[in-house]
Structure formats: structure tokens, C-alpha cells
């Protein structure tokens, strides 16, 4: 059977428990999700095919929900992911503060290059807001990430954020391929990747969110 897609990327969602990672994922993969196929291996709505610049990209998204506090379990996911969505809950200040820990964790425990974005979820609950949009933008800026405010329940910016991350990963992947073609030497390759990491972190202006 021919492949239905050109690339397969693995994305990972990180953030405190209760920030709504699973809800976001569920919203994103809604149409692909088949509730009749869940009994044997548990629910894992993680696959979705996107089309980015005419390229078919299959994304597999790992959700760490329920396992955030199991340090070694979450680490397992880090290894092969190419992109990370850091999620906090705009109604929960602590989850926002903890983003720093999740980011440093990823920095430390991954050797490969990762594309990352920051997401403040539950932006529909403006009455309970504890973290301003400006704070989110600032934090994202300090890490050189793009920032979105989303709402899984109102379906605001969900697919936008996943798609943007996929785009970033695809771009990075293409750059990496160019690098590899340019040099077969593994040492240089490694050095190149490292260099890449420094120079290509996007510093785009933060996207404004619709809410």
C-alpha cells in the first residue's frame, strides 16, 4: 500500500495536569477519531494528516495526560519528538509558572532539535483569567517561541497552533536535510545541528489570537 503522506512527524504536548492537553488533542483530531475502536489499546487520538505547502504531513501527537507526575514516564516521550506544544491554563497561574520547568526539562533531556510553541489554553474563561495574554506573549518571546491562546471547548486557535507547529517542524526538517546533503561527515553534521538550533529559533512576532 502506498504511503498516504510524505512525512511523519511526532509532536508532544507538555504542561501540568489539568491544563486541557487532552481536550485540545481531542478537538484537533475530532474528525479522525473513531470512538468504536477504543477497547483494546485504550484511547489514543494522535494521528492526523495535514497538508502544508502542498506536502502531506502525518502528525502523531503524544499526550502525557495523567502521567505528568511520573517523571520517568514523561521522559520516554521526549526522545523522539520533533515538536513540542507547551500548554498552560490561563486560569491557573501555577501552570504558567511551571512552563519554565517543562521547557528546561525538554532542553536537558532531548538531544535532538525540537521545534516548540507555547499555548495558553482555556482562553474562553476570561472571568477566571489569572495569566494575561501579555504575560504569555512575553514568556514565549523569552524562549523564542510563537504563542497562541486557545480554547478547546470553543475551538479557538486549536488547529492553528497544531498546524503552525507542524509547519515549523517541516521547515526545520527541510533545513536538516539540506545540511545532511551538504556534509556526510557525522561530526560536522552534529555540529551543524547544534548551530542550527542557535540560529534558527524563530523570533517571529507573536501571533495574535482571536479571542
Amino acid at each position: 500500500m502506498a504511503k498516504q503522506y510524505d512525512f511523519l512527524f511526532r509532536l508532544l504536548m507538555l504542561g501540568d495536569s489539568g491544563v486541557g492537553k487532552t481536550c485540545m488533542l481531542r478537538r484537533f483530531t475530532e474528525s479522525d477519531f473513531d470512538t468504536t475502536h477504543i477497547s483494546t489499546i485504550g484511547i489514543d487520538f494522535k494521528m492526523k494528516t495535514l497538508e502544508v505547502d502542498g506536502t502531506k504531513v502525518r502528525v502523531q501527537i503524544w499526550d502525557t495526560a495523567g502521567q505528568e507526575r511520573y517523571q520517568t514516564i514523561t521522559k520516554q516521550y521526549y526522545r523522539r519528538a520533533q515538536g513540542v506544544i507547551f500548554v498552560y491554563d490561563i486560569t491557573d497561574k501555577l501552570s504558567f509558572k511551571h512552563i519554565a520547568k517543562w521547557v528546561s526539562d525538554v532542553d536537558e533531556y532531548t538531544t535532538q532539535k525540537m521545534e516548540t510553541i507555547l499555548v495558553g489554553n482555556k482562553c474562553d474563561e476570561s472571568l477566571r483569567r489569572e495569566v494575561s495574554k501579555n504575560q504569555g506573549t512575553k514568556l514565549a518571546g523569552s524562549y523564542g517561541m510563537e504563542f497562541f491562546e486557545t480554547s478547546a471547548s470553543k475551538n479557538i486557535n486549536i488547529s492553528e497552533s497544531f498546524e503552525r507547529l507542524t509547519e515549523l517542524v517541516l521547515q526545520a526538517h527541510k533545513r536538516d536535510v539540506d545540511h545532511l546533503l551538504g556534509s556526510l561527515d557525522s561530526y560536522l553534521d552534529k555540529a551543524g545541528l547544534e548551530e542550527d538550533k542557535e540560529s534558527t529559533v524563530p523570533h517571529c512576532p507573536q501571533r495574535s489570537c482571536a479571542c
Binding site: L94, K101, E194
Partner: peptide, 23 residues
């Protein structure tokens, strides 16, 4: 081997992380 440039200047985790997530 060249050391990873990210490691030395990684942002420090806030100390109160411990009270939030680790037990």
C-alpha cells in the same frame, strides 16, 4: 566532542517547581 551549546545556558527552573509538581 563539542558540548551542546544549550546545556550551559539553559534557563534555570524556578525553585518552587518542586512544591508544585514533585512531591
Amino acid at each position: 566532542l563539542p558540548t551542546s551549546p544549550t546545556t550551559p545556558n539553559k534557563p534555570l527552573a524556578p525553585l518552587d517547581w518542586a512544591s508544585g509538581v514533585a512531591t
